[in-house]
Design a protein around this nucleic acid. Structure first.
Lengths: 197, 197
DNA sequence: TATAAACTGTGAAGTTGTTGTCGGGTCAAC
DNA sequence: GTTGACCCGACAACAACTTCACAGTTTATA
């Protein structure tokens, strides 16, 4: 009774899959599928005599759906609900998730601000210059700040505390001349309206 | 031996705090502080004879630091390291966090896309119009989409599939005339350069 | 002064979505 | 008959808490 599980064929019937095959094709781990089975989200529709799971084409499709919803960041509980009420999938769940994402992004943006403030303070602090220009720019870029965001940041900083801004620029190893240029450019830059988000 | 804990006074000495007082002032739960105590991140420097925790001013300051770092989204392990090496706080940790935030935001944006795609499909699907214009806009707004983002979205959709775009607009209850206007405007709108993020 | 309400303590277990490890069974090939 | 590649179920671990159960302490009220 081996042929069933191994190659995925039962004569000319629909293909079947072992647990690890399915895991690989969806970029999941075997344990994840075991977990889905345990919580009843996705059970293999058959077993071999030895107890090996056999996933059918239908199971595969279901898993595809699950992955789709998971990629949207939905919890397994929500995924279960969505799959349960197939006819008219619950808009409210998706909406709720969308709202949550918005909140999370705002939250992360705030964290970015806190961190850049910390790093700014450290860079212009009494310590040895731990940070130089390239590192600084790389960090902010890695944080997802684009040109515009950096410009806004410079403008905001310049408006709030020009002296500290200058000090920071010098700390980053930028020569006097260039630092003054940046300051001037920041003063002319797009006003950092306080309601921007 | 009650006076110590209760009002937070020992004669004219520094103020002290009970666990719940401290929790309230920092917007944490009592259990969180218990947790911090257990893992040794913040232990009360004294106890009453009955075993009640007494937090000193110093403890309070430490907690303030902890909260600051936590607000930046750092893990308790990282917070511990930062507090341990007080003199020259580790820039690398902050940098790493900043990078992680960037990644997370990108990820969430992707999830937004997936969800809006799903909702779009549902709104223009074979079901009854589950969503109308106001709800739609409210949802996207709640997701943190501003005017610009919505414009980009319309432009992208229009470029990709004008017919489907039109269908969706109609589904949302927008009259023919207005729908065509929106389409025209979307075609003129800022090109959705694929490298935008 | 008695008593109830509000607070405190400890320890254990639960939460979420996995990953990893264990010992042991199964299968195909050589 | 023995490798090596699979599979099984069960359990431990992660983060940062929360919740629970149960017992002792303090404070306010009657």
């Amino acid at each position: 009774m081996a042929a069933v599980a191994a190659a995925g064929f039962t004569g000319s019937r629909m293909p079947t899959y072992t647990i690890s095959q399915l895991a690989r094709t969806f970029g999941l781990s075997r344990s994840a599928l075991l977990h889905y089975d345990r919580i009843g989200l996705l059970r293999a529709s058959q077993r071999t005599m030895a107890g090996y799971r056999i996933y059918s084409q239908k199971d595969r499709d279901r898993l595809a759906q699950i992955c789709l919803y998971r990629d949207a960041g939905l919890s397994l509980a929500d995924v279960r609900h969505l799959l349960a009420a197939q006819e008219r999938p619950d808009v409210k769940i998706l909406e709720k998730r969308l709202r949550a994402i918005g909140e999370q992004i705002l939250n992360l943006r705030n964290q970015q601000r806190i961190l850049t403030a910390m790093l700014t303070k450290m860079a212009s602090g009494p310590y040895e210059p731990v940070i130089d220009k390239t590192l600084w720019v790389k960090m902010l870029a890695a944080a997802g700040m684009d040109e515009a965001a950096m410009a806004r940041w410079h403008a905001e900083f310049e408006q709030l505390a020009p002296a500290a801004h200058y000090a920071l620029l010098r700390q980053l190893g930028i020569p006097e001349r260039e630092a003054r240029q940046i300051q001037a450019w920041a003063r002319r830059a797009p006003a950092p309206s306080s309601k921007e988000r």
